[in-house]
């Protein structure tokens, strides 16, 4: 038989190999999904300050958002191809003026909740948009990585490579992204067989953030009801304000943590019960991170190369020790 030297490895090297590989397997994996890097921003929306821009034709934040994003959606082709076999399209091109919900043409709207407060009735105005979650399933699960979370904290859809399959909307606890059929890259590939448009949502004005400017809605707010800043500072500020008004925070734990913190004197259960919910009108209830249950298995995937490596070395060492004994060598 060939000796171990001929195979180019000694028995001692085998054992050292096992020990090294096993050690590599126990090197601790990070404990938690990285909730945004050091440079990540967060926003605060103070519902005690927002009055829904009473008296204005359109809330200032909504108007600023619409102006900033005017022309983002290209003109859909006419007729819009019917996706085989279901034939369902989503077309808001003739309803571009709608501001009472999220649409592909409207990424921010102000929800209204009639609630009892201090013995009287009060209308709470709640600006709603993408929460820019810390570990957003909408981005991580996109099969083309058309949706991505940037270091700024912004979760941005690249409209040039989105096929409009709406996976992001399905895994988002608030079903935020909105589809416009008849636009986008799918038209140039297999328009009736794959894809159905492009998804649109708030991008936290990522282009302005990288220039050191704030999002258009925040800049436009006459009541300073919205803030943006480093994540830790915004969290501290949200907690300070919530404590001062004996109020509540939404967005800190929801969907595994988000970069949008609502502060309200009225509890979010009460607000959630009072708002109109439905397509394009997200709830304010509990939001479990749907990907959470895949985390343990994902950790096993990350560890699997080490498992294979250690098992391979151990099996080879075992086989060769056995053959050594059988051959009566060494």
């Amino acid at each position: 038989m060939k000796t171990e030297r001929e195979h180019g490895i000694s028995r001692r090297a085998f054992l050292t190999g096992i020990a090294t590989a096993a050690a590599a397997g126990t090197v601790g994996l990070p404990g938690k999904a990285r909730a945004g890097g050091e440079g990540a921003f967060a926003t605060l929306i103070d519902l005690s300050l927002c009055d829904g821009c009473e008296g204005r034709e359109m809330p200032a934040c909504v108007a600023a958002c619409r102006e900033k994003n005017a022309g983002v959606v290209p003109e859909p082709v006419d007729p819009i191809p019917k996706p085989f076999p279901r034939g369902q399209i989503e077309d808001f091109s003739r309803k571009q003026g709608v501001t009472s919900r999220l649409t592909p043409y409207n990424y921010l709207f102000v929800q209204k909740a009639e609630v009892e407060l201090g013995g009287g009735k009060k209308t709470v105005s709640i600006p709603r948009r993408c929460m820019h979650c810390d570990n957003p399933a909408c981005a991580t699960i996109c099969p083309f990585s058309a949706n991505h979370k940037f270091e700024s904290g912004a979760v941005v859809i690249d409209q040039d490579i989105c096929f409009g399959g709406a996976k992001c909307r399905e895994v988002c606890p608030w079903a935020i992204p909105q589809r416009q059929s008849g636009v986008g890259i799918y038209l140039h590939i297999l328009p009736t067989l794959a894809g159905n448009g492009v998804m649109f949502k708030c991008d936290l004005c990522q282009d302005l953030l990288v220039k050191g400017e704030g999002p258009a809605c925040i800049t436009a707010c006459p009541r300073k009801a919205m803030l943006i800043g480093p994540k830790a500072d915004i969290l501290a500020e949200a907690e300070r304000r919530a404590a001062a008004m004996n109020g509540f925070i939404y967005g800190k734990e929801e969907n595994g943590g988000t970069s949008t913190l609502y502060v309200s004197p009225v509890s979010f259960e009460v607000l959630n019960a009072a708002i109109e919910k439905g397509p394009g009108r997200p709830h304010l209830g509990k939001a479990q991170r749907k990907m959470e249950k895949t985390d343990p298995m994902a950790r096993a995937v990350v560890a699997s190369p080490v498992i294979g490596l250690v098992a391979g070395i151990a099996a080879a060492a075992g086989a060769r020790m056995k053959s050594g004994k059988e051959g009566g060598h060494e």
Partner: peptide, 22 residues
């Protein structure tokens, strides 16, 4: 993920085992 664990571990096992076995 579940099948990836089998796939990755088996692939690496294959490479390492046969490499060391010559």
């Amino acid at each position: 993920y579940l099948f990836s664990v089998v796939f990755i571990a088996a692939s690496l096992f294959h490479v390492v085992y046969h490499w060391f076995m010559g």
